[in-house]
Amino acid sequence: MRLITVNATVTASNDRDAEALRNRLTEKGTLLVNVMSAAGSGKTTLLSRIIRDMPEMKIGVMEADIASDVDAKTIEALGAEAIQVHTSGMCHMDAGMTAAAVDAMEGHADLLFLENVGNLICPAEYDTGAHLNMMLLSVPEGDDKPLKYPLMFQKSGALVITKTDALPYFTFDLDRCVERAKKLNPAVNVFPVSAKTGEGMEALEAYLRAETQKLSAKEF
């Protein structure tokens, strides 16, 4: 037996797969957005709204779920291509699983969403190959979440604060939440929205359009 020094982080091979997938999608002209949040923060509702509001874009959705396929059915009913990815009990999507899901999509998408498993911890630890990490935090969850789950906030390029129509019923301090998030990640883009009333949706959709255009200009 001989001793071999490895000194590699366990996720090193995942990081390589992620980079390869990102480059491949850039070539294809598909912006991949990794949508992460706790269970029930409003991911499927938000994506449904975006699909309805942006008919000019070809949008695809990959729904990662531990078992069911209700979310994929909801998206398909809106006329967008959706596939269900079963994670077989795994609490996050990694780059290999994401690449397999991308290959399973039939049509071209300008904007492809990955609805990650609902959980604020493990999905943040794995680069999926997405161009953009978008995390959702819903008003009922509370404004202290940046303190409890810092990594998720650090890894996200966009923070969408959802269910703002519920602000009158909860003690959620929007300014304090944004301040806490910016402390962890000064470059984060924050979008307070209500997918129910549509409030704040234009700003988020304009941002997604701009990111998609950046991709055609190969700025990733």
């Binding site: 071999i4 020094t5 490895v6 982080t9």
Partner: peptide
């Protein structure tokens, strides 16, 4: 304190 690293292995 948040890392997970393969430091070394013994092998043949």
């Amino acid at each position: 304190g948040s890392e997970c690293i393969v430091k070394e292995i013994e092998a043949e």
